[in-house]
Amino acid sequence: MGRWEPGARERLQGAALSLYSGKGFEVTTVAEIAQAAGLTERTFYRHFADKREVLFAIYDEFTQPFLDGIEDAPRDARPIDVMAAAVARASGFFTAERQPYSRARQGVITDNPELHERELLKLASLAATLATALRERGVPEPSATLSAEMGVTVYRVSFEMWIADGESRPMADIASGVFAELGALTAPA
C-alpha cells in the first residue's frame, strides 16, 4: 500500500465518497475506505477522526477564507457588508472543478439523516467563529451574531443553489444575488 504517497487525504475523501454513494454511508467501513484509497486504517485515522468527518473536514479548509474576507473588508463597512466580503472570499473555494464532488457529497448527506446533525453543528461552529471575528473588529452585539448568522445562511443557500443540477454560475455570483435578495427583504417598505 502506498501509505507515504502524497495526496493521502484527498484519496481517502474520494474513496469514501465513492463508497458512500455506491453502497451507502452506514454500511461502508473505515477499512473499506482505506483499502479503496490504497492506504491503511492507521493512515485514515491520522487524517480523520471518524468516517463522518471525511465529509465535513471541508469546513476546516474554507473557514480561513471567510476570516480573510472579514479581515480585508474596509474598516468602515457595515457588518453585513463585511459578511458579504467574507462569503465572496470563501466562494472562491468552490470552483467549477469542485462542483461534481460537492454535489455528490451533499447527496450523501441528504440521504443520511444522521449526517444532518453534523452538518448543522459545523455551520453553527462557523457562525460562532465569524461572530467572534466580527466582535474583534469592534462590531457590537447583537450585530456581530446577527451578521455572522445571516452570512452563514447566505452561504448555505448559495451553496445549495450552486450544486443544483444545471447550475453553471460561479458561487460568488450566486452569493451576491442572495445577499441582494436579503437586502430587499430587509429594506424599509
Rank of each mutant, 00 (worst) to 15 (best):
E149N: 05
I70S: 04
I33H: 00
I163F: 04
Y59K: 04
A172Y: 07
T40H: 01
G14P: 00
Q99T: 06
S18Y: 04
R3S: 08
M161G: 07
D173T: 13
S21G: 08
L126W: 09
A127R: 10
R11Q: 08
L123K: 13
M150D: 05
P74I: 06
A86H: 06
A31N: 08
L115H: 09
R105M: 10
D173K: 08
E71K: 07
W4G: 11
R169T: 07
R105L: 13
G107V: 15
D165V: 01
P79F: 09
L120Q: 14
Y20K: 06
V154K: 00
T43H: 10
G22F: 00
M1H: 03
A184F: 03
M150H: 03
F56Q: 13
G14I: 00
T186G: 01
L134Y: 14
A164Q: 11
F25D: 00
A133N: 06
M171R: 07
E41H: 04
G24D: 01
A133Q: 12
S21R: 15
A57Q: 14
E119S: 11
T110D: 15
Q106S: 13
G69W: 09
A187W: 11
R46V: 09
L12K: 02
V82P: 01
F66R: 09
E26I: 01
V108D: 00
P142Q: 02
G7S: 05
T110G: 11
F66C: 10
F62P: 01
M150Y: 12
P74K: 04
Q13E: 13
A164P: 06
V154C: 00
Y20A: 06
V139K: 14
F159L: 08
G138K: 11
D173L: 10
Y20P: 01
T110L: 15
A90F: 11
D76Q: 13
M83F: 05
T40R: 01
G92A: 04
P100Q: 04
L182T: 12
L123H: 10
R42Q: 11
P65H: 02
A15W: 07
A15D: 00
A8I: 05
G2N: 07
L67V: 06
P188H: 14
L126A: 13
G166A: 09
A96K: 14
A31S: 13
T110R: 15
D81W: 02
G24I: 07
R118M: 04
S18G: 08
F48Y: 14
E61R: 07
A148I: 00
Y20E: 02
A180W: 15
R78T: 02
G138C: 04
A131W: 14
I70E: 03
A37K: 03
A88D: 15
T132A: 15
T29Q: 05
A90V: 10
F179N: 06
A187N: 11
